[in-house]
Nucleic acid binder design. Sequence first.
DNA 1: TAAAAATGTTGGCATATTGCAACATTAATA
DNA 2: TATTAATGTTGCAATATGCCAACATTTTTA
Lengths: 116, 116
Amino acid sequence: MEKGIKYWHAMSDPAFLELLGNFIQQTRLQQNKTQQQVATAAGINRSTMVQIENGGGGTLLSFIQILRALEQLQILEHFEIKQQFSPLQLAKMEQKKRQRASAKKDTTTKKTKSNW
Amino acid sequence: MEKGIKYWHAMSDPAFLELLGNFIQQTRLQQNKTQQQVATAAGINRSTMVQIENGGGGTLLSFIQILRALEQLQILEHFEIKQQFSPLQLAKMEQKKRQRASAKKDTTTKKTKSNW
DNA sequence: TAAAAATGTTGGCATATTGCAACATTAATA
DNA sequence: TATTAATGTTGCAATATGCCAACATTTTTA
Protein backbone atom coordinates (compact mmCIF):
# COMPACT_ATOMS: atom_id res chain seq x y z
CA MET A 1 0.00 0.00 0.00
CA GLU A 2 1.25 3.47 -0.82
CA LYS A 3 2.69 5.51 2.00
CA GLY A 4 0.01 7.74 3.44
CA ILE A 5 -2.70 6.36 1.22
CA LYS A 6 -5.39 4.14 2.67
CA TYR A 7 -8.69 2.95 1.33
CA TRP A 8 -11.12 3.67 4.13
CA HIS A 9 -14.14 2.90 2.03
CA ALA A 10 -13.07 -0.73 2.13
CA MET A 11 -13.60 -0.81 5.90
CA SER A 12 -17.01 -1.97 7.12
CA ASP A 13 -19.18 0.02 9.48
CA PRO A 14 -18.55 -2.40 12.39
CA ALA A 15 -14.84 -2.07 11.68
CA PHE A 16 -15.10 1.68 12.20
CA LEU A 17 -16.97 1.15 15.46
CA GLU A 18 -14.05 -1.03 16.54
CA LEU A 19 -11.60 1.64 15.46
CA LEU A 20 -13.29 4.23 17.63
CA GLY A 21 -13.60 1.78 20.51
CA ASN A 22 -9.95 0.83 20.31
CA PHE A 23 -8.95 4.47 20.33
CA ILE A 24 -10.85 5.02 23.54
CA GLN A 25 -9.54 1.88 25.20
CA GLN A 26 -5.92 2.51 24.22
CA THR A 27 -6.09 6.13 25.33
CA ARG A 28 -7.65 5.09 28.61
CA LEU A 29 -4.98 2.48 29.29
CA GLN A 30 -2.20 4.89 28.38
CA GLN A 31 -3.60 7.09 31.12
CA ASN A 32 -3.88 4.05 33.40
CA LYS A 33 -7.52 4.73 34.18
CA THR A 34 -10.22 2.15 34.87
CA GLN A 35 -13.44 1.96 32.91
CA GLN A 36 -15.25 3.04 36.06
CA GLN A 37 -13.06 6.10 36.49
CA VAL A 38 -13.57 7.28 32.93
CA ALA A 39 -17.26 6.46 32.94
CA THR A 40 -17.78 8.45 36.12
CA ALA A 41 -15.80 11.38 34.75
CA ALA A 42 -17.83 11.19 31.55
CA GLY A 43 -21.09 11.04 33.44
CA ILE A 44 -22.15 7.74 31.93
CA ASN A 45 -22.55 4.17 33.11
CA ARG A 46 -19.65 1.73 32.92
CA SER A 47 -21.72 -0.66 30.82
CA THR A 48 -21.93 2.04 28.19
CA MET A 49 -18.16 2.39 28.27
CA VAL A 50 -17.78 -1.34 27.76
CA GLN A 51 -20.22 -1.31 24.90
CA ILE A 52 -18.44 1.47 23.02
CA GLU A 53 -14.92 0.31 23.84
CA ASN A 54 -15.68 -3.13 22.44
CA GLY A 55 -17.02 -1.78 19.17
CA GLY A 56 -20.66 -2.23 20.04
CA GLY A 57 -21.47 1.34 19.18
CA GLY A 58 -23.54 3.88 21.05
CA THR A 59 -24.65 7.47 20.74
CA LEU A 60 -22.58 10.40 19.49
CA LEU A 61 -23.24 12.10 22.81
CA SER A 62 -21.76 9.26 24.87
CA PHE A 63 -18.77 9.21 22.57
CA ILE A 64 -18.18 12.93 23.02
CA GLN A 65 -18.59 12.62 26.78
CA ILE A 66 -15.94 9.92 26.85
CA LEU A 67 -13.55 11.92 24.69
CA ARG A 68 -13.99 14.79 27.12
CA ALA A 69 -13.22 12.58 30.10
CA LEU A 70 -10.05 11.44 28.34
CA GLU A 71 -9.19 15.00 27.32
CA GLN A 72 -9.19 14.03 23.67
CA LEU A 73 -11.77 16.47 22.33
CA GLN A 74 -9.15 18.18 20.19
CA ILE A 75 -9.34 15.25 17.81
CA LEU A 76 -12.72 16.53 16.69
CA GLU A 77 -11.08 19.67 15.35
CA HIS A 78 -10.90 17.94 11.99
CA PHE A 79 -14.65 18.31 11.65
CA GLU A 80 -14.38 22.07 11.70
CA ILE A 81 -15.32 23.85 8.51
CA LYS A 82 -12.13 25.45 7.32
CA GLN A 83 -12.59 28.40 5.00
CA GLN A 84 -11.02 31.68 6.01
CA PHE A 85 -11.95 34.74 3.97
CA SER A 86 -11.87 38.48 4.42
CA PRO A 87 -14.98 40.11 5.93
CA LEU A 88 -15.65 41.72 2.56
CA GLN A 89 -15.56 38.42 0.74
CA LEU A 90 -17.75 36.85 3.41
CA ALA A 91 -20.34 39.62 3.03
CA LYS A 92 -20.56 39.05 -0.70
CA MET A 93 -20.83 35.29 -0.38
CA GLU A 94 -23.43 35.50 2.32
CA GLN A 95 -25.93 36.68 -0.25
CA LYS A 96 -25.45 33.85 -2.69
CA LYS A 97 -24.68 31.13 -0.17
CA ARG A 98 -26.40 27.89 -1.09
CA GLN A 99 -28.64 26.67 1.70
CA ARG A 100 -30.29 23.83 -0.15
CA ALA A 101 -29.18 21.38 -2.78
CA SER A 102 -30.07 22.33 -6.29
CA ALA A 103 -33.01 20.87 -8.15
CA LYS A 104 -30.86 20.61 -11.24
CA LYS A 105 -29.61 17.05 -11.38
CA ASP A 106 -27.92 17.47 -14.76
CA THR A 107 -24.46 18.92 -14.25
CA THR A 108 -23.06 17.74 -17.58
CA THR A 109 -25.01 19.90 -20.02
CA LYS A 110 -25.06 23.06 -17.95
CA LYS A 111 -22.10 24.56 -16.16
CA THR A 112 -22.69 24.92 -12.42
CA LYS A 113 -21.60 28.35 -11.28
CA SER A 114 -19.52 28.33 -8.13
CA ASN A 115 -20.53 30.48 -5.21
CA TRP A 116 -16.99 31.77 -5.06
CA MET B 1 -6.43 33.31 20.90
CA GLU B 2 -3.09 31.84 19.90
CA LYS B 3 -2.69 30.66 16.37
CA GLY B 4 -3.39 26.95 16.17
CA ILE B 5 -4.34 26.71 19.80
CA LYS B 6 -7.95 26.20 20.78
CA TYR B 7 -9.59 25.26 24.01
CA TRP B 8 -11.93 22.48 23.05
CA HIS B 9 -12.74 21.58 26.61
CA ALA B 10 -14.60 24.87 26.82
CA MET B 11 -17.09 23.67 24.21
CA SER B 12 -20.26 22.02 25.49
CA ASP B 13 -21.43 18.60 24.41
CA PRO B 14 -24.35 20.03 22.38
CA ALA B 15 -21.87 22.38 20.70
CA PHE B 16 -19.89 19.36 19.53
CA LEU B 17 -23.04 17.74 18.20
CA GLU B 18 -23.61 20.92 16.22
CA LEU B 19 -20.03 20.85 14.99
CA LEU B 20 -20.47 17.34 13.62
CA GLY B 21 -23.85 18.20 12.16
CA ASN B 22 -22.53 21.29 10.44
CA PHE B 23 -19.69 19.30 8.96
CA ILE B 24 -22.14 16.86 7.43
CA GLN B 25 -24.45 19.57 6.14
CA GLN B 26 -21.66 21.68 4.66
CA THR B 27 -20.07 18.70 3.01
CA ARG B 28 -23.42 17.62 1.60
CA LEU B 29 -24.16 21.06 0.17
CA GLN B 30 -20.68 21.34 -1.31
CA GLN B 31 -21.53 18.15 -3.17
CA ASN B 32 -24.96 19.60 -4.05
CA LYS B 33 -26.79 16.57 -2.71
CA THR B 34 -30.20 16.53 -1.06
CA GLN B 35 -30.81 15.09 2.38
CA GLN B 36 -32.84 12.36 0.71
CA GLN B 37 -30.02 11.44 -1.66
CA VAL B 38 -27.45 11.16 1.11
CA ALA B 39 -29.83 9.36 3.44
CA THR B 40 -30.64 6.79 0.77
CA ALA B 41 -26.97 6.31 -0.04
CA ALA B 42 -26.26 5.92 3.67
CA GLY B 43 -29.07 3.44 4.13
CA ILE B 44 -30.86 5.53 6.73
CA ASN B 45 -34.04 7.57 6.92
CA ARG B 46 -34.08 11.26 6.00
CA SER B 47 -35.44 12.17 9.41
CA THR B 48 -32.29 10.72 10.92
CA MET B 49 -30.22 12.89 8.60
CA VAL B 50 -32.15 15.97 9.70
CA GLN B 51 -31.68 15.07 13.34
CA ILE B 52 -27.92 14.68 13.08
CA GLU B 53 -27.39 17.60 10.70
CA ASN B 54 -29.19 19.94 13.07
CA GLY B 55 -27.10 18.92 16.06
CA GLY B 56 -29.70 16.65 17.60
CA GLY B 57 -27.29 13.79 17.84
CA GLY B 58 -27.77 10.13 16.94
CA THR B 59 -25.85 6.90 16.95
CA LEU B 60 -22.22 6.40 16.01
CA LEU B 61 -23.35 3.94 13.38
CA SER B 62 -25.62 6.42 11.62
CA PHE B 63 -22.83 8.97 11.70
CA ILE B 64 -20.41 6.55 10.10
CA GLN B 65 -22.97 5.59 7.47
CA ILE B 66 -23.42 9.24 6.55
CA LEU B 67 -19.68 9.86 6.37
CA ARG B 68 -19.45 6.89 4.02
CA ALA B 69 -22.23 8.24 1.80
CA LEU B 70 -20.35 11.55 1.63
CA GLU B 71 -17.03 9.79 1.05
CA GLN B 72 -15.56 11.41 4.14
CA LEU B 73 -14.51 8.32 6.07
CA GLN B 74 -10.86 9.31 5.79
CA ILE B 75 -11.50 11.89 8.50
CA LEU B 76 -11.72 9.07 11.00
CA GLU B 77 -8.09 8.21 10.32
CA HIS B 78 -7.18 10.40 13.27
CA PHE B 79 -8.61 7.78 15.60
CA GLU B 80 -6.10 5.22 14.45
CA ILE B 81 -3.55 4.13 17.00
CA LYS B 82 -0.27 5.24 15.53
CA GLN B 83 2.76 3.37 16.80
CA GLN B 84 4.95 1.64 14.25
CA PHE B 85 7.61 -0.72 15.56
CA SER B 86 9.70 -3.53 14.20
CA PRO B 87 8.23 -7.06 14.47
CA LEU B 88 10.91 -7.87 17.04
CA GLN B 89 10.00 -4.94 19.22
CA LEU B 90 6.34 -5.79 18.87
CA ALA B 91 6.96 -9.36 19.98
CA LYS B 92 8.73 -8.19 23.12
CA MET B 93 6.08 -5.67 23.99
CA GLU B 94 3.26 -8.10 23.40
CA GLN B 95 4.26 -9.95 26.54
CA LYS B 96 4.19 -6.99 28.87
CA LYS B 97 1.40 -5.07 27.22
CA ARG B 98 -1.00 -3.61 29.74
CA GLN B 99 -4.53 -4.86 29.24
CA ARG B 100 -6.06 -3.41 32.36
CA ALA B 101 -5.58 -0.28 34.36
CA SER B 102 -3.36 -0.71 37.36
CA ALA B 103 -4.66 -1.12 40.87
CA LYS B 104 -1.96 1.21 42.12
CA LYS B 105 -3.50 4.65 42.36
CA ASP B 106 -0.39 6.24 43.86
CA THR B 107 1.99 7.22 41.08
CA THR B 108 3.94 9.74 43.11
CA THR B 109 5.76 7.51 45.56
CA LYS B 110 6.51 4.68 43.17
CA LYS B 111 7.89 5.03 39.70
CA THR B 112 5.66 3.44 37.06
CA LYS B 113 7.73 1.37 34.71
CA SER B 114 6.92 1.97 31.05
CA ASN B 115 6.02 -0.95 28.84
CA TRP B 116 8.64 0.24 26.39
C1' DT C 1 -44.15 35.90 -8.83
C1' DA C 2 -46.01 31.24 -9.26
C1' DA C 3 -44.58 26.53 -9.14
C1' DA C 4 -41.53 23.10 -7.72
C1' DA C 5 -38.30 21.21 -4.83
C1' DA C 6 -35.67 20.92 -0.54
C1' DT C 7 -35.87 21.21 4.18
C1' DG C 8 -38.20 21.39 8.75
C1' DT C 9 -41.65 19.53 11.97
C1' DT C 10 -44.81 16.38 14.14
C1' DG C 11 -46.62 12.00 16.03
C1' DG C 12 -46.93 7.03 16.41
C1' DC C 13 -44.60 2.91 16.63
C1' DA C 14 -40.44 -0.26 16.34
C1' DT C 15 -35.90 -0.75 17.67
C1' DA C 16 -31.61 0.47 20.06
C1' DT C 17 -29.24 2.50 23.77
C1' DT C 18 -28.61 3.55 28.64
C1' DG C 19 -28.47 2.73 33.46
C1' DC C 20 -28.38 -0.47 37.03
C1' DA C 21 -27.17 -4.59 39.55
C1' DA C 22 -25.44 -8.95 40.15
C1' DC C 23 -22.30 -12.31 38.89
C1' DA C 24 -18.40 -14.53 35.94
C1' DT C 25 -13.96 -14.15 34.09
C1' DT C 26 -9.38 -12.48 33.63
C1' DA C 27 -5.20 -9.78 34.54
C1' DA C 28 -2.25 -7.61 38.02
C1' DT C 29 -0.52 -7.61 42.48
C1' DA C 30 1.84 -9.09 46.67
C1' DT D 1 0.11 -18.93 43.83
C1' DA D 2 -3.60 -16.67 46.45
C1' DT D 3 -5.82 -12.45 46.53
C1' DT D 4 -7.50 -8.39 44.72
C1' DA D 5 -9.07 -5.48 41.29
C1' DA D 6 -10.42 -4.67 36.52
C1' DT D 7 -13.06 -6.17 32.93
C1' DG D 8 -16.73 -8.94 30.64
C1' DT D 9 -21.53 -10.63 30.63
C1' DT D 10 -26.42 -10.92 31.49
C1' DG D 11 -31.23 -9.41 32.23
C1' DC D 12 -34.52 -5.90 32.91
C1' DA D 13 -36.76 -1.34 33.00
C1' DA D 14 -36.39 3.44 31.39
C1' DT D 15 -35.09 6.35 27.94
C1' DA D 16 -33.48 7.66 23.36
C1' DT D 17 -33.07 6.89 18.65
C1' DG D 18 -34.72 5.29 13.97
C1' DC D 19 -38.24 4.74 10.64
C1' DC D 20 -42.32 6.22 8.36
C1' DA D 21 -45.78 9.32 6.68
C1' DA D 22 -48.00 13.45 6.32
C1' DC D 23 -47.89 18.19 6.33
C1' DA D 24 -45.69 23.05 6.98
C1' DT D 25 -42.11 26.13 5.79
C1' DT D 26 -38.49 27.98 3.10
C1' DT D 27 -35.46 28.24 -0.80
C1' DT D 28 -34.76 27.77 -5.63
C1' DT D 29 -36.28 27.65 -10.08
C1' DA D 30 -38.52 29.11 -14.37
